Computed example of a mutant assay.
Amino acid sequence: METAVEPGNNEPLLFGFGFDEAGLHTPLTWDEVLEGGHAKYKRVWLHLDRQSAQAQGWLYRKSGLDRLTVQALLQEETRPRAARHGHGYLINLRGPNLNEGADVEDLVTLRMWAGEDLLITLRARPVRSATDVRKLVEDGEIDTSTGALVAGLADRLTDRMEIVLDDFDDEADRYEDELLDPKARIDRSVLPEFRRRVLQVRRHITPQREALNTLVRDGAQSGLFSDQDLLFLRESADRITRLTELVENIRERSSVLYEEAIQSSTEETNQRLFVLAILSAVFLPISFVTGLFGVNLGGIPGAGNPIAFITLVIALALSVAGTLALLRWQRWI
């Protein structure tokens, strides 16, 4: 999917739109926002860089939001949630990190203040789902109410999360096939790393399900979401529920895979030790006899007999055969 490109990290306003009574959009600039020019529109969507000092200053001084709301939007560590606050909602949602050179399981956060006439979204790292919805707005393919935009963002975040977890599921299938293939040798070190990645996603996807369920449950009473918006949110919540079950299944499979890999390695080690033990048992009598006859002392039996060496060799061979027969009789080999 083609997505719009966000400005550099130094820009406080990554993009913004003002919407008139008919829902038609007008792009906004940071200067217009600073001068209050966005106030003439019926509804506004501002997508800000959370790490920008200018954006933080505007939120505290000119956004019209109370200090508690701004602090919640700017705090460093968050988990997915949706909470009613006054006439709007504080919403934190997570999505896969699809930025170049990043790990997809290092989920990015999209924070939102959703009010009737103002939608503020913030991110520290680029969130492609936000630029997806931006393109829908520019192409006129989405309703521009606050509820519709929030539902669209949730839908796009869920779309991309599905792709990541389907890839995890395929990766688990591949590891299972390698373990079942006797000719394949799997690197055991990849399994703990795979499980860590799965757990990192699981840590946030479960509360994300609760956040979406909260919006579905309380959204109708707030008046912020239309029936169509709630339908999209309910669909996103159902898909997240399925993904939660999928990530639990992948987590359990990753644990079983690691245990099977350890068991397979242990069996290989035990088999090698068993072979060494058998060899030691076979050659122990030979080592004892040759050690005894190898001492440099007088009185060694057969020292002057020309057939003594051959006799000793035959006796040692019979000892080996007898030891092997005994081990076979005991079903050790």
Rank of each mutant, 00 (worst) to 15 (best):
222 S>P: 12
294 G>A: 06
100 E>M: 04
245 E>I: 05
73 L>V: 08
304 G>L: 15
178 E>A: 04
281 A>Q: 12
243 L>D: 05
98 L>V: 03
192 P>K: 12
204 H>S: 03
277 A>I: 14
73 L>K: 00
95 G>N: 01
248 E>V: 00
31 D>K: 07
331 R>N: 07
9 N>S: 12
231 L>E: 11
220 A>Q: 09
30 W>K: 08
230 L>P: 03
167 D>E: 15
36 G>I: 12
63 S>P: 08
272 R>C: 08
295 V>W: 12
207 P>W: 05
12 P>M: 02
15 F>S: 00
101 G>W: 04
12 P>E: 07
140 G>M: 01
130 A>L: 04
79 R>N: 10
295 V>D: 03
178 E>F: 00
62 K>H: 09
164 V>S: 07
243 L>P: 10
62 K>A: 10
2 E>M: 00
211 A>G: 02
71 Q>G: 12
79 R>Q: 15
146 T>K: 01
15 F>Q: 03
151 A>W: 03
279 L>P: 10
194 F>Y: 11
64 G>Y: 00
213 N>Y: 05
116 E>R: 12
99 N>R: 09
145 S>Y: 15
229 D>L: 12
76 E>T: 13
141 E>N: 11
328 R>H: 10
295 V>E: 09
149 L>C: 10
13 L>V: 03
175 Y>R: 07
39 A>F: 04
28 L>T: 13
98 L>D: 07
211 A>I: 01
164 V>N: 02
226 S>V: 13
193 E>D: 07
271 Q>K: 13
43 R>P: 07
231 L>N: 05
132 D>T: 12
16 G>D: 07
8 G>P: 15
139 D>H: 11
231 L>P: 03
294 G>C: 06
98 L>C: 05
88 G>K: 07
288 F>D: 11
319 S>W: 10
199 L>Q: 14
215 L>Q: 07
7 P>M: 11
47 H>L: 07
145 S>D: 07
328 R>Q: 10
7 P>T: 13
124 A>M: 08
216 V>L: 09
110 L>H: 09
114 A>H: 12
138 E>G: 03
308 A>F: 08
186 I>D: 05
250 I>M: 11
177 D>V: 09
162 E>P: 05
48 L>Q: 02
6 E>I: 13
311 T>M: 07
6 E>A: 14
115 G>M: 08
167 D>N: 15
5 V>M: 15
1 M>S: 01
187 D>G: 08
22 A>P: 05
54 Q>D: 14
302 G>W: 05
92 N>R: 07
185 R>T: 09
88 G>Q: 09
181 D>C: 01
46 L>S: 08
4 A>K: 14
230 L>K: 05
202 R>C: 06
